[in-house]
Design a protein around this nucleic acid. Structure first.
Length: 479
RNA sequence: GCCCCUAUCGUCUAGAGGCCUAGGACACAUCCCUUUCACGGAUGCGACACGGGUUCGAAUCCCGUUAGGGGUACCA
């Protein structure tokens, strides 16, 4: 069978990580089976849909290298197909006009709730006589189209993630609205569940892979497939991504959209890898792999049915792994936007200096956005020396060492890390002290920090920018 | 409220009746490397939610309880 899958995001928000993971699962399945991956934008909610969100979704998928083979299709451009479908159901008596007002429905639900019953539509307009309909029309009521749901009725399907799923039609909330009617009396845009089914039929979708939150929709949609005389596709409902507390992940949890992860400095490779790991594992236990690697083995057999909590620690670790696997020049390229964002014109420095800096800070990076902070000392004339720092540097050994260092540095334009090390070793030998007795104060003198990147390359890079001598002289003037 | 789904270390997971005194990864702790932080290496800590069955034997199968999640729209 030809595999045709689709991602069907609605442009009512930025590309959500849950949608991204669904996208990855679809993509993997398509690649694994030599199938087709289709992108369809479900923009039938005209109140909430925005073009900017569509763009964000497209950009996010591109950033993640989730390429689609068909689309994007837009539901708003397929209105005729839905209208046809609704007419088909209407003609065959499988759907009908309902004239209930918002207020009537609300009242009905309030009564049901008071009686501790599940809120549902009671199908009251299912058998309206032509006279009743005319009366409502005369009142100026605008109807909706409802699809008849027979009750009771067991709806069963085989789910690739959770095996057998059974749903009773009486738990579906009564006859469902599938389309609105416009003021002109013409059929308007369809509602979600109907549009999805029409599209999936037209696009010959073979496997519907979407989040667990759609399970109840699947039951409704299967009924629609039957009414339209089409065999339903295969379904797969992977679980949702949960936050650290085990609840549905939300904006309060730090970041929920792919674009946020991007600006936080996560690598798309790391993000993808983490998303797959959240719910799926390869049989060989491998943890670091690309989506292309995963596509070789991906199967729903190994997708967990339980929700997975989002763990920043592990994502951070993965990101670090990917950062360190990058070549220096590749990392340099990826860092560009983050230097820029921090107001650092990195291009103003010699290539070799940039490369050395990049290599130096690489082990300290968890996310790309860490770079400006880690490298901050290289982009100021002097670090901020705390007032009490002179005291801790006030030994004869330090004064002699720094003085000697300044002397030598003044005689050379360039300096490598190895040469810097030789200079320090010379002082260690001359003064017969431990290396730390010079390294620690030297770090403090150079950066005003007790911790930081490797000192010898740091000194070399500072000197190449003529920053080392002035700093040391400033320190010496206080000793 | 009602319906559905789920349940192995703190987290992500391996495990498809005996291979399990339950394996890996992250996190954490200790040690090593190192001037420091980080990186890297090593070791350690740490779980089958509970109660009943089924079976010679259950993390694995069944039932119940509990807990968590999802759904319950003229949103998608």
């Amino acid at each position: 069978m030809t595999v045709r899958v689709r991602l069907a995001p609605s442009p009512t928000g930025n590309l959500h990580i849950g949608t991204a993971r669904t996208a990855i699962f679809n993509w993997l399945y398509a690649r694994r089976h030599g199938g087709t991956f289709i992108l369809r934008i479900e923009d039938t909610d005209q109140e909430r849909s925005r073009d900017a969100f569509t763009q964000n979704i497209l950009d996010g998928l591109a950033w993640l290298s989730i390429t689609y083979d068909e689309g994007p299709y837009f539901q708003t451009q397929r209105r005729d197909r839905y209208v046809q479908g609704v007419h088909q159901l209407l003609e065959r008596g499988l759907a009908y006009y309902c004239y209930c007002s918002e207020a009537e429905l609300e009242e009905m639900r309030a009564i049901q709730k008071a009686q501790k019953l599940a809120p549902r539509y009671d199908n009251r307009h299912r058998h309206l006589t032509p006279e009743q309909r005319q009366a409502y029309e005369a009142e100026g009521r605008r109807p909706v189209i409802r699809f008849k749901i027979e009750e009771p009725r067991e709806i069963r399907w085989h789910d690739l993630v959770r095996d057998h799923v059974v749903w009773n039609s009486r738990d579906l909330g009564g006859d469902m609205v599938i389309a609105r009617v416009e003021a002109s009396g013409e059929l308007g845009l369809p509602l979600y569940n109907f549009a999805v089914v029409v599209d999936d039929i037209d696009m010959q979708i073979s496997h519907v892979i979407r989040g667990e939150d759609h399970i109840a929709n699947t039951a409704k949609q299967i009924l629609l497939y039957e009414a339209l005389g089409v065999t339903p596709p295969t379904f797969a409902h992977p679980p949702l991504i949960l936050n650290a507390q085990g609840a549905k992940i939300s904006k309060r949890d730090g970041a929920t959209s792919v674009s946020e992860f991007r600006s936080l400095g996560y690598l798309p490779e790391a993000f993808n890898n983490y998303m797959i790991l959240l719910g799926w594992s390869p049989s060989d236990g491998q943890e670091l792999f690309s989506i292309a690697d995963a596509a070789q083995h991906f199967d729903f057999d190994r997708v967990n049915a339980a929700g997975a909590r989002f763990d920043w620690d592990k994502l951070n670790w993965l990101n670090g792994q990917y950062i360190r696997a990058l070549t220096v020049s590749e990392l340099g390229d990826r860092l560009q936007p983050f230097w820029q964002q921090a107001g650092i014109d990195i291009a103003a420095y010699p290539d070799s200096w940039q490369q050395e800096l990049t290599a130096l800070i690489a082990p300290s990076l968890t996310v790309l956005a860490d770079a400006p902070k880690v490298a901050t000392t290289f982009f100021v004339d002097y670090p901020e020396y705390p007032p009490d720092i002179w005291e801790s540097l006030g030994s004869e050994v330090v004064r002699v060492a720094l003085t000697a260092l300044v002397e030598v540095l003044k005689t050379r334009d360039t300096l490598t890390a190895a040469e810097a090390n030789d200079l320090v070793q010379a002082q260690v030998a001359a003064q017969k002290v431990k290396k730390g007795a010079i390294m620690k104060p030297l770090r403090l003198a150079l950066t005003a920090e007790p911790h930081g990147t490797e000192l010898m390359p740091t000194l070399a890079l500072l000197h190449q920018r003529q920053l080392a001598i002035p700093r040391l002289e400033k320190v010496l003037s206080h000793l």
